[in-house]
Design a protein around this nucleic acid. Structure first.
Length: 259
DNA sequence: GAGGTTGTTTAGAA
DNA sequence: CTTCTAAACAACCT
């Protein structure tokens, strides 16, 4: 669930099903899922209040509720689900907010991520730690300066949440593949940051619109899972490489390795 | 059983 | 200071 595009889909769900509704009940089938408060202080803070808005910063979703806000991180397997009030609990439902109409549930199989309660006026960095500007809000100039000013692998830079927020393993692979840049190219050796920036914008806006990395024609994601994957553009066999601690997926012909 | 997974954090090394 | 690595977290899957 968890890159910029997925979180954007979750934001829209929260906006559609919870914003404008009052919180009438809170149940925590997994009390540990709220990382910085217990069940009773969560109730004290939120019961009777209404969700007034929601925004996304990188992979973080921020739900505003009058004097407080709830920071939501999805880890690898989190999502929000809207249900009718009577619906039975799913095995991985970790938090249930009963609204004046229906319920909003935070579901998360692996329990990476979680919920954080904070006051409306405190900066989210207090919870998130150092976080760069949202990837969809980075200017071309800032992007060029950021990439060219570092010697780390370009994929590592794209995934560095303290530099640019929102891009993870799949999106970075997709962006680099489209820009014809090998993930192990050093930031300061990226020849065409304009092109890289342009592909980043394109991948982010298209995937955010879909609420996920599209499993569609012309996307690397379409072939990613297959062990016999071949490049959707040139049919060369897809390679896998360890970069920044993750498995990168790339086309050795479109994305020639640096020296 | 082994090794893999769209996430972050920490410690330690180079 | 920057960068990289491994491990931990947790619950699955192949």
């Amino acid at each position: 669930m968890p890159e910029l595009c997925d979180v954007e889909g979750q934001r829209r769900r929260l906006d559609r099903f919870a914003v404008g509704r009052s919180i009438e009940g809170i149940e925590l089938p997994d009390t540990e899922i709220v990382r910085n408060a217990d069940e009773s202080s969560l109730r004290d803070a939120l019961l009777g209040a209404s969700f007034t808005g929601a925004y996304r910063h990188g992979k973080w979703l921020v739900a505003l509720a009058e004097s407080h806000k709830l920071l939501v991180h999805f880890g690898m397997t989190g999502l929000l689900v809207s249900t009718d009030s009577g619906e039975s609990l799913h095995r991985h439902d970790r938090a249930v907010f009963s609204l004046d109409d229906g319920q909003l549930r935070y579901r998360n199989q692996r329990r990476l991520g979680g919920l954080w309660l904070t006051s409306a006026d405190s900066p989210i960095e207090q919870i998130t730690g150092p976080i760069g500007p949202d990837a969809q809000a980075v200017s071309k100039q800032d992007f060029a300066a950021l990439v060219s000013g570092r010697r780390a692998h370009v994929k590592a830079i794209l995934m560095d949440q303290s530099a640019i927020a929102g891009i993870g393993n799949l999106l970075s692979d997709e962006i680099l593949w489209r820009a014809y840049v090998h993930p192990k190219v050093r930031g300061d050796r990226v020849a065409d940051h304009q092109g890289l920036y342009k592909q980043m914008r394109k991948v982010l806006s298209e995937s955010a619109r879909r609420g996920q990395v599209p499993q569609a024609q012309g996307w690397l994601q379409q072939v990613r899972e297959r062990s016999d994957a071949s490049c959707p553009r040139c049919a060369t066999a897809i390679e896998r490489a360890k970069v920044a601690g993750r498995t990168a997926c790339l086309c050795p012909r479109c994305q020639p390795a640096p020296n």
